[in-house]
Design a binder for these strands. Structure first.
Length: 1104
RNA sequence: GCGCCUGUAGCUCAGUUGGUUAGAGCACCCGCCUGAUAAGCGGGAGGUCUCUGGUUCAAGUCCAGAUAGGCGCACCA
């Protein structure tokens, strides 16, 4: 592979021949170069003394394959980091791996073909965790290979790994500090629970297919009899439930505060045949919206708002001693029991608008309980079975009381019968609804308040809110709305998980006196325990084997069984990645790399990593003021999901996942990166469209490569040297060069500003416009001849230098986004300066920006467009020279410009027109002036009078318009008030009044002199001939530099004369050494063309 | 259910602090050019800026509501 050799050494070497057809291969050579040269390490070393720009890598988990969305996130991170390096900053890019957590366990369970906690315990926690430790590296190779391939520069030599001893050790220290501040407490967390597996389920597990099943359940309406004085007719609150088994644990009722509740008098049910109402009546409360549906016939006795019912007391439905549990987060108030409370979550779609509250068995119920400090009862334990006998009344026994040990689902029937028997059951039916089941064992789940450890983040709420205001969120709404709201509604963080593979919680609790300690690290544990067993590891189960002596009562302290929420791991990475504070030198590293200047992850991390970093940071900066009073990260760039081309989320199930390797192999990773970054704002969901990707490759990269090829071909032939002393200074170059120089500097300024402001898409777009429209399609196309003409003079050198500088700037500016192509170009353009990624970003030289020149080219381009349109209308191809172009304009400056050689010749040459016919101010014969108000300037000044003013301005007469054009202000009469109107306030435009074809854009009126004389026709014919001959050259397979002998046999005197008259032009354009003019009909076997004007040509060529 | 984002040409997207002819690229049709050539250029067609209402002299842009899609959170007593 001589290619990689060329890469580093050869000035103006061609791009790899397959760069456009198979960019992937060319990119691989760059990777090889980076590898052999150690480019990344060298860059990092070169920036070692730079100002730090702190970047934190959000750790991916390596037990899933990386997908195309990871390419997006990594491209954004990489591009920002590369750019910051180019600004001279030191950007450390420490890799990290997220290795703990439930997904890992599930993967291992699958592999071992076991399922559920009992089976894991049977398998052995030690062996299980060993498997987990291995499992997380399943796809490590994939990640590293893909990261390298996409050019994501990351330091994999010293990655942080969340299961590492130093990492866990650090987390223990942080938790101990939190514990010491009283921020850690034992509470209860209501979560879906499987009694058989004895475990809570994560929301992820609840989302598994088949979890929700349609099953029949009781649907019962229960009377909660009001306490206190009862009249002749019993008065009750009616509540609906589908889980009678929770009724023994009932502690309150909830109503909606703003709904109306009806006090209804209804007939008591009677036996068949008896007269309605003969058994008497009762009074029931239900929400107004449901009264008819629930009660049928009733007499309304009154109404109350829900909040007016609040506080009412009722008699418990079961008078049994159900065990109470300590909620942890509050101290229960027994006097609050069996009362009505208000809650916004109460709905009126079904039920009665009165919801029975059993805090242990519902998250909403738990919230109500927390708010009102309710007692928490648990008639059903973690195994899903009754923990005590339930019998409301002695006679219930004959129905078979719900006995201790009954599975909760099986208890329903007995409880319903008991309630019915005691007259508390208003209605009893069965209803089919969807109910969650354990995805492992298919057992019906129940919500259950399980013991859990909490971090009192509510104590940090104000600090978090205040810090959030100082984070630059991109886009802003994520911070102000999504994240801000999440902080406003902050609740304490449940940091415990009843699992196996995770950072063990460092909390030891005394089995005697319940005293708890938090251990701040391995060394502290060793000291407290005396010694640690052989093969000790800061994971389960070895850590569980360590017991401590209680300092209070001398009893045995055991570690709490739970492990840490693995989100805490990643949120603690700013500190734990350095092993702070136990690892020597970590303190210095931490201070250097805190806070982050920049992080970047998917929107799904708002409540994930973004939050955990923020919350832990809020604590740490408070605890360690030397870290500064700052949020953990200063800028957070959020990226959206990558969807398939139809806007559907990619999933294995649908088979619409885009394999990043396929896309890269086909189009090259630069195109993929460019497409992902430039196709839309990074935070919007992105549709991945392979066709659009191909377009990026063709449109942008293809054009750029073509531009370089053009430059390179001639630069080599002429041995152009960018350091040649004869190159004219920019100010001494032709206007067209100064224009491109100016545009180049404007581009540098624009892209620099945008990239520094994290606007990668905006920078990419600016680069696209520049390369495709300005550099390639205008500058190069217009100036081709300057490069291939014979002598190397100042003009040629100016052209070379101008193009070289433009390409050079493009290579530098595109480097962060398209690191491979940039490198390929740069090493050829600047062969002695090493990698493009080690360069400093260019700075715009404002002295070279010429606004007037840029505006001038705009005028030129507008006239060219108009001229082409005129040719189109007249049916005159560009090859046919025309005599003249006429222009009228009210813009004196523009006319002056067109009179200049520079702009005038550009227009005429581009349009193949011999000269200007007339070029002047509107004379009123072919066009007239019309005026329109400039709303932008006048609107603010005039406000409501704008409309009237606009009408007056449109009605301005010619003299006054002329005055305005001349730069004089004019007075307008608006309702008797005189208003001064400046030329800037009026947009004067021209309109054609001509009877022949003209073009106008409001600023210019243009028309063509279409009259052809013999000379023009002859020249046109000559050009046609050149075109045909050159086409023939190509068809014949001649190389561009091949010389030919050209034999022409024109069939017509006019053509014959034209060809003789323009023989040298013909010969020059076709590289003919000799041109033979033959008689008509002498080349019967040759190519024959109709050149127009009734002229046919036969010709033959041969290599000379 | 709650919150956030998005809805502009057939497709993918721009659209400045509100300012009067709403743009680009692709695709399509027509034409052109070709010593950058597995490129390039021009022209054309294509829009009730999702809908309704409001604020304003002026709304794609601001406000409210509706609607469709996406995402997140919660819940189904």
């Amino acid at each position: 592979m001589s290619e990689s050799h060329d890469l580093s050494t050869a000035r103006f070497a061609p791009l790899p021949s397959d760069y456009s057809s198979a960019p992937s291969a060319a990119e691989e050579t760059v990777l090889g170069l980076w590898r052999s040269e150690g480019t990344f390490a060298a860059l990092q070393a070169a920036r070692a003394q730079g100002e730090p720009f702190v970047f934190w890598e959000g750790p991916p988990t390596a037990n899933g394959k990386p997908g195309i969305h990871h390419v997006l996130a990594r491209t954004l991170k990489d591009s920002v980091c590369r750019w910051q390096s180019m600004l001279g900053h030191r950007v450390e890019r420490k890799a990290g791996w997220d290795t703990h957590g439930l997904p890992v366990e599930l993967e291992v369970e699958k592999r071992l073909a076991i399922s559920g906690k009992p089976q894991i315990e049977q398998y052995g926690v030690g062996a299980f965790n060993a498997q987990c430790r291995e499992s997380v590296w399943t796809y490590k190779q994939d990640w590293e290979r893909l990261s390298e391939r996409i050019g994501y520069w990351l330091d994999y030599s010293q990655p942080y790994i969340t299961y590492d001893e130093t990492f866990v050790d650090s987390i223990w220290h942080i938790l101990a500090r939190m514990h010491a501040r009283g921020l850690v407490y034992r509470g209860k967390k209501v979560l879906p629970f499987c009694g058989r597996c004895g475990t809570g389920l994560s929301s992820h597990e609840l989302g598994q297919p088949g979890v929700y099943k349609e099953i029949p359940d009781p649907s019962v309406y229960v009377r909660f009899v009001l306490a206190g004085e009862q009249g002749a007719e019993r008065e009750s609150l009616l509540a609906w439930t589908t889980t009678p088994w929770t009724l023994p644990s009932n502690i309150a009722l909830a109503v909606h505060p703003e709904r109306e509740y009806v006090r209804a008098r209804v007939a008591l049910p009677v036996h068949k045949g008896a007269e309605k109402g003969s058994a008497g009546h009762e009074i029931l409360w239900v929400v107004a919206e449901r009264a008819k549906a629930v009660l049928g016939e009733f007499a309304e006795l009154g109404r109350k708002l829900g909040r007016e019912l609040a506080g009412a007391q009722y008699r418990p439905v079961f008078e049994v001693a159900v065990p109470e549990v300590d909620p942890g987060a509050w101290t229960p108030d027994p006097s609050a029991s069996h009362r009505v409370y208000t809650a916004d979550y109460v709905t009126v779609e079904d039920g009665t608008g009165i919801v029975h509250q059993a805090p242990s068995y519902g998250a909403d119920d738990w919230e109500v309980a927390r708010k009102h400090r309710l007692v928490v009862k648990q008639a059903v334990g973690a195994e899903g079975r009754l923990v005590c006998d339930i019998a409301g009344a002695p006679e219930a026994a004959k129905f078979g009381p719900a006995a201790k040990g009954t599975f909760f689902k099986d208890a329903d029937k007995a409880l319903v019968k008991d309630l019915k028997n005691r007259g508390l059951m208003f209605r009893d039916a069965e209803e089919t609804h969807s109910y969650p089941h354990c995805w492992r064992c298919n057992t019906a789940l129940f919500y259950f308040a399980a013991p859990a450890w909490f971090l009192r983040t509510t104590a940090l709420k104000q600090r978090m809110i205040e810090h959030n205001r100082r984070i630059r969120w991109i886009p802003g709404e994520v911070g102000s709305a999504r994240f801000g709201e999440w902080l406003e509604n902050n609740i304490d963080w449940n940091i415990s998980r009843d699992r196996y593979w995770g950072t063990p919680l460092p909390f030891w609790v005394c089995s005697g006196c319940d005293h708890e300690v938090s251990v701040g690290g391995r060394e502290e544990l060793r000291q407290r325990a005396g010694k640690l067993p052989d093969g000790f590891d800061l994971h389960k189960p070895t850590v569980d084997a360590v017991t401590l002596a209680c300092e209070r009562c001398g009893g045995t302290m055991r570690r709490t069984n739970a492990v840490l929420d693995c989100w805490f791991d990643s949120g603690a990475m700013p500190y734990a990645q350095h092993g702070w504070p136990h690892v020597p030198g970590s303190e210095r590293k931490l201070r250097d790399q805190f806070p982050a200047s920049f992080i970047c992850e998917g929107l799904d991390q708002t409540r994930g990593w973004f939050y955990t970093l923020h919350a832990i940071g809020a604590f740490m900066t408070q605890e360690f003021p030397e870290l500064g009073d700052t949020p953990a990260y200063r800028t957070c760039l959020v990226n959206g999901l990558v969807l398939d081309k139809d806007g559907v989320k990619m999933s294995k199930r649908l088979g619409n996942i885009v394999n990043p390797w396929d896309a890269i192999a086909k189009h090259g990773v630069d195109a993929v990166r460019w497409y992902l970054v430039a196709s839309a704002a990074p935070w919007l969901p992105k549709r991945f469209d392979p066709d659009a990707l191909a377009e990026v490759q063709r449109g942008f990269f293809g054009t750029l490569a073509n531009s370089y090829r053009f430059f390179q071909e001639y630069a080599r032939i002429d041995r152009f040297d960018p350091a040649d002393a004869r190159i004219p200074a920019p100010s001494a170059r032709p206007e067209i060069d100064r224009w491109l120089v100016s545009r180049t500097q404007s581009l540098v300024r624009d892209v620099r500003r945008r990239f520094t402001d994290f606007d990668l898409a905006g920078g990419a777009r600016a680069l696209e416009t520049f390369v495709v429209d300005e550099l390639s399609n205008w500058y190069i196309r217009r100036n081709r001849r300057r490069f291939w003409k014979g002598e190397t003079g100042a003009d040629k050198l100016a052209a070379f230098a101008t193009l070289h500088e433009a390409l050079r700037s493009v290579a530098l500016l595109m480097a962060p986004l398209a690191p491979f192509t940039a490198e390929l170009l740069w090493r050829r353009l600047e062969s002695a300066r090493g990698s493009v990624h080690a360069q400093l970003a260019p700075r715009a030289d404002e002295r070279l920006v010429a606004a007037s020149l840029e505006q001038g080219i705009e005028v030129v381009q507008r006239l060219v467009v108009m001229g082409r349109a005129l040719r189109e209308k007249a049916g005159q191809k560009v090859r046919q020279p025309l005599r003249a172009l006429h222009v009228r304009s009210s813009d004196a400056a523009a006319l002056e410009l067109l009179r200049s050689r520079f702009a005038g010749e550009l227009v005429l040459d581009e349009l193949n027109i011999k000269g200007w016919g007339s070029l002047g101010a509107d004379d009123g014969q072919l066009c007239k002036l019309s005026a329109k108000a400039n709303f932008r300037t006048l609107g603010k000044r005039l406000g409501a009078r704008m409309k009237a003013a606009a009408a007056k301005i449109e009605a301005l007469d010619a003299p006054r318009l002329a005055a305005l054009r001349g730069g004089t202000s004019v007075a307008l009469d608006l309702d008797g008030e005189s208003v001064e109107v400046t030329p800037e306030d009026v947009l004067v435009s021209v309109q054609s009044t001509a009877t022949f074809d003209v073009e106008t854009d409001g600023r210019f009126v243009a028309w063509l002199d279409l009259e052809l004389d013999a000379a023009l026709v002859a020249e046109g014919l000559a050009r046609e001939a050149v075109n045909r001959v050159n086409t023939l050259r190509k068809e014949t397979g001649l190389a561009v530099e091949d010389r030919i002998v050209l034999e022409l046999a024109p069939e017509g005197a006019e053509l014959a004369a034209a060809l003789r008259a323009h023989e040298s032009f013909l010969a020059g354009e076709t590289l003919a050494l000799r041109v033979l003019h033959l008689a008509a009909g002498s080349l019967p076997e040759s190519a024959s063309w109709d050149l127009g004007h009734g002229q046919n040509l036969r010709a033959r060529i041969a290599r000379a």
